[in-house]
Amino acid sequence: MTGRDPNGSENEVTLILHNDREAIKRAEIAFTEDVGSYAYPEAATFALRLAFEESVINAFRHGHAALPDEPVQVSWRAGPDEVRLTVEDNGPGFDPEAIPDPTLEENIEKPSGRGLMLIRAYMSRVEFNEKGNRVTLTYERPSASEAG
């Protein structure tokens, strides 16, 4: 299930994931191992793992709130310069701009609504399709100067 073939080129990995914790965990490990094969810094691996977790859980919890038995499609392509992860559910979609800012005083004690904010904070780009049921996350390797 690796995304890197023996001659070193990048392959896209696509998985159909059911809402089964062990299956999600295995996919997350495969994803982080694939990212790890390109020697990203530890902070990047932390960020990508968090983004994977939050985007997949959002797809099941929100996208498939009324579709508990439906799987979601997860695909990624890891490479030396960037990692791209796409998560697509079969739900009705949502308007990402309509999510309240969880850092505002009136929302800070609400227990939900932080997943998308964390994804946006850690990823280089976060793009939704028009329907709002597919998100593509891109993490670009920091340049040497950015990495300090």
Binding site: R49, E53, I57, E109, P111, R114, G115
Partner: peptide, 16 residues
């Protein structure tokens, strides 16, 4: 080593 936004939500509920 890792925690998710769902864990943050639980901490908020416990704090309250």
């Amino acid at each position: 080593d890792h925690l998710s936004s769902a864990a943050l939500g639980t901490l908020i509920t416990l704090n309250t």
